[in-house]
Design a protein around this nucleic acid. Structure first.
Length: 281
DNA sequence: AACTAGGACAACCGCGGTTCC
DNA sequence: AGGAACCGCGGTTGTCCTAGT
């Protein structure tokens, strides 16, 4: 993998002073130079790569440009519901370990996931006037957003082979899905093998499940979710003292839809009176 | 049509860890 | 063994684009 062993006679230095480094947006020419160089020499040793390729950029800058933008397998834009689900789940497990999270989203870069989190998720915590790490916000994500993402994935996939990204995740069972009680923000829970009484996989409380759910979806397996009876009730997941003012949830819902991409043709089904009730109680 | 604000994303910076000499 | 160079990560800033006024 390591191709260029260090020296590159011809392109070399120019003394440090002479070699003023470029900054800011990359030009098409620079992109081409970098791509051509990497295609023939491979990546790695970024500082010498930058010099040898004749790019007036730091090695860091070249590395970043390659990894986040030029790499052939990089995907940009249109974070799918499946990916959103994974990001939420993995972030709940690992926090801001963007590169680790990115490893589970093929083609996505840590930078993109980080940007997604900051622009979409954190912003909404702000809109909801709670901290992104607060229990309230985590519960909103866990019990409202994530289930609806799953619902959306299921709907899209049921809608046929509609979009390829969704189709990749196969079909979710048409069974009712509910949530089982969990403690705090730990993801959707742990997938339990379907018992004879339950044809579908059950998602329960204790582990991390967004990732597993996505995997199950991908495998075309059915899942069943169980809703906690006590969610939103006094003494439940949202204890009274931490509840925002009355009407909080109701007011927040349209925004959640709008900003979190839950709107559109199926948005009518996403937020119902039951939800509002849970949150207001 | 012009201006402004906000969103999305690309790029940079600083730091800690690792590798190389 | 130790210092220098390099790499990768997470946080932050900059830039461009678009929607709203």
């Amino acid at each position: 993998m390591e191709v260029h062993g260090g020296t590159c006679s011809s392109a070399t230095p120019h003394s440090e002073e002479e070699m003023e480094l470029r900054r800011g947006p990359w030009t098409l020419e620079e992109d081409l130079v970098l791509m051509n160089y990497i295609s023939s020499h491979g990546e790695g040793r970024w500082n010498s790569l930058a010099r040898c390729a004749g790019l007036k950029r730091t090695g860091k800058s070249c590395r970043l440009r390659w990894l986040n933008y030029l790499r052939p397998d990089v995907r940009r834009g249109n974070i799918t519901p499946e990916e959103q689900l994974l990001i939420l789940e993995l972030h709940s497990r690992w926090g801001n370990r963007w590169s680790k999270i990115a490893q589970h989203l093929p083609g996505r870069t840590d930078n993109e996931i980080k940007n997604y989190w900051r622009t979409r998720v954190q912003k909404h915590a702000k809109h909801l006037q709670c901290d992104v790490d607060s229990k309230q916000f985590k519960d909103v994500m866990r019990y409202l957003w994530m289930p609806r993402l799953i619902e959306r994935i299921r709907a899209a996939s049921a809608n046929s082979n509609a979009t390829e990204s969704v189709a990749d995740y196969g079909n979710l069972a048409a069974s009712d899905h509910t949530f089982e009680a969990g403690t705090g923000w730990g993801g959707l829970g742990e997938i339990v093998k379907p018992g004879p009484e339950s044809p579908a996989t059950t998602v329960s409380s204790s582990g991390a499940a967004g990732y597993e759910v996505a995997e199950k979806l991908k495998a075309g397996e059915a899942i069943q979710l169980t809703l906690p009876a006590q969610i939103g009730c006094g003494g439940g997941l949202w204890p009274e003292p931490s509840l925002p003012s009355p009407g909080y949830a109701y007011q927040a819902l349209p925004e959640l839809e709008q900003y979190w991409g839950l709107g559109g043709e199926i948005s009518d089904n996403l937020w119902n009176l039951e939800d509002i009730c849970y949150l207001q109680q």
